[in-house]
Design a protein around this nucleic acid. Structure first.
Lengths: 204, 204, 204, 204
DNA sequence: AATGAATGAGAATTCATTCAT
DNA sequence: AATGAATGAATTCTCATTCAT
């Protein structure tokens, strides 16, 4: 190597300086950018290049964070799951509220994920459809839906006994997911809204 | 036209005979093979090569029948839709039966598509999930779900007035689709069975 | 064969009847359709399918007339050559006219091939460019240009001695071909017109 | 900026050094290899595979540099244009020389492109013919011929007034291009040589 | 951590040509 | 003569992944 050590040091310093100027790139940032892209373009139609570009990185650099696109997708699903846990399902366990209020808050929080508040239109593809298409991710989806189910069951238990609460929860999850699907197919959020209303009425 | 009818008939027959003699496959065969593959492997993970192989053809030969993979997928969705029209939705309009029976028959016919009777397990991915991921196919999916909705509405109208029948139909479609999704995610047809039972109970 | 002879006869008759209704398809017809297509779309961008379609035939049927696309192209070049011989170059040998008139008539006839009289715009690609790109056709092109050269030389010999007439002919061919090229590149027939005028002036 | 200029220089140098170390080829190398192939084999008969092989790369690697074969061809035409600007047309503007000398030098430089000095034979097909066949490239060809025309006009203006210089330039371009075509068709550079001589005589 | 050139496998598609009928 | 299904080789292009620097 013909570059002397002092120079190398300067270069490293300069690079660090440049990086500081850029958007901080960490795993979470990449995951969030990926979520955005997957929603708009689908897992299959989003290339590692696209993701890299959205992160201000180059393709190869992503492989420092994830050893494959599938691993990244897995992390994305987990991140979405985590979001739902802390921002949506959590309302189910606000013991200071009654069941109706909890359900209402939970649905309001969920809505944000699917419906663009400004335009009133459906957001693009959610991870679920993309994920369903890849069987490797079923355990992660199962885990997600377990939590979804448990949250609703917990709310229903404020009014019903366990076995009924369980049945209601299962039905509700199915109804909600089905209506999300319809909303997306018809590009009309009304199906979700109707379902949410119906479910709230039912618990009343 | 100077050819008499009997002759035309003979000619048609002769042509058919010719076709049978040379033709290795026909469009319907390709579509059916494609459906099988798409169910197992997903639209994205099924290559034209795979389809060709399943048909005993070479890749290029498929392009006699479909000018692109997307066109083939479109035809696949239409074929599934057609199947549902003639084999599933049709029970909704058997006016000689009561609503409960119609629903029961319709659900039984639908089940066959999703659940492997022999193994009792879920079949693989259906076109719907694949299709959802490609926005070009939404009109076809809308058309499918329109028919699904109308069939259920027609059944519910045997017991309820129109506006209620409509609401019930919408709910039912959502519930069914959601439960199919859950059944697939948990690889357990029980969710669909439960939903079908519940819906039949409800109309009783 | 289960079809009786009488029937076969009828069928043949019926087919013949159908054919009579169609455009008569013979080699010249195919060649003319091909010329049209090659001019618009280039040799490389015109498929045998395109040609067949333009002739009301199916791809495979073309192979009754030409054993390959290249052979067809060869025949096309020859046909164009023939056209030029009988419709364009021929004016060079109208011994009853003077040189100027012959040149004028020859150029007028040539113009028709390159410039659309109605729109005043250049026609698309001529065979020459397409042909140049395939070295197998150089003998045919040489033959074409030999005749072109001889025609002009013959005209020039009405005013000049042989060696000068030869030189002028060679120059003229080059100038004309170059200006056709420019006219095509700039999509403006003026370059050809200018050249024709200049050449007529020169002989005067 | 806290990095002093000397450092920046070093860094640039270091980066260049890095690039040299890893890079197998660069854009210019690919373009030059492509020019060679297009000349011998035509744009249509040269595959991306051929080009890759000529560059010691794999097919896919080319797409780092060009997003399509057409883009590559565009760059090739521009490169040829650039070559003509700096190596051929440039002689037109050597104000210290008289018109005859400029023309002579320009033609000598041009000859090198078309005629193999060693064998005395014509080189294969040049990009121009290939390009002519693809309408997307006409703007690039127009730009090329604009410069060609301006160079010749500039030379003619040493002896003639502008309008005459213009006419002569247009004629000369046509004559040269036409004679290149003839030289190629007859595989005999004499046509170009004759034209060049004639044009030089004319300006004398 | 980041680069980005290179890989290499595979995708969809095109098309001239063949051939049994 | 005509069909048109089938071939099969080639072509452009994509993309996840690797790796030397």
């Amino acid at each position: 190597m013909f570059l002397n050590k002092r120079l190398v040091k300067y270069i490293n310093f300069a690079q660090k300086y440049n990086n500081l100027a850029k958007q901080k790139v960490d795993i979470d940032f990449i995951i969030n950018q990926s979520i955005k892209l997957f929603r708009i373009k689908t897992y299959h139609n989003t290339s590692m290049s696209d993701i890299a570009e959205a992160c201000g990185l180059l393709k190869g650099s992503l492989y420092h964070y994830f050893k494959s696109k599938e691993e990244l997708m897995g992390k994305v699903i987990i991140a979405v799951h985590e979001y739902f846990k802390t921002e949506v399902f959590t309302f189910a366990f606000k013991e200071e509220l009654n069941g109706v209020d909890r359900l209402q808050l939970l649905f309001e929080a969920a809505q944000i994920v699917f419906v663009n508040k400004k335009t009133g239109k459906m957001y693009g593809n959610m991870g679920v459809e993309s994920a369903m298409v890849i069987s490797d991710f079923t355990p992660l989806l199962q885990s997600f839906f377990n939590d979804f189910f448990l949250a609703l069951k917990h709310i229903y238990q404020t009014k019903f006994e366990e076995s009924i609460a369980e049945e209601l929860a299962e039905r509700s999850v199915a109804e909600i997911e089905g209506s999300i699907m319809l909303s997306r197919i018809y590009d009309n959020p009304q199906y979700i809204f109707n379902t949410f209303e119906r479910l709230i009425d039912r618990i009343r």
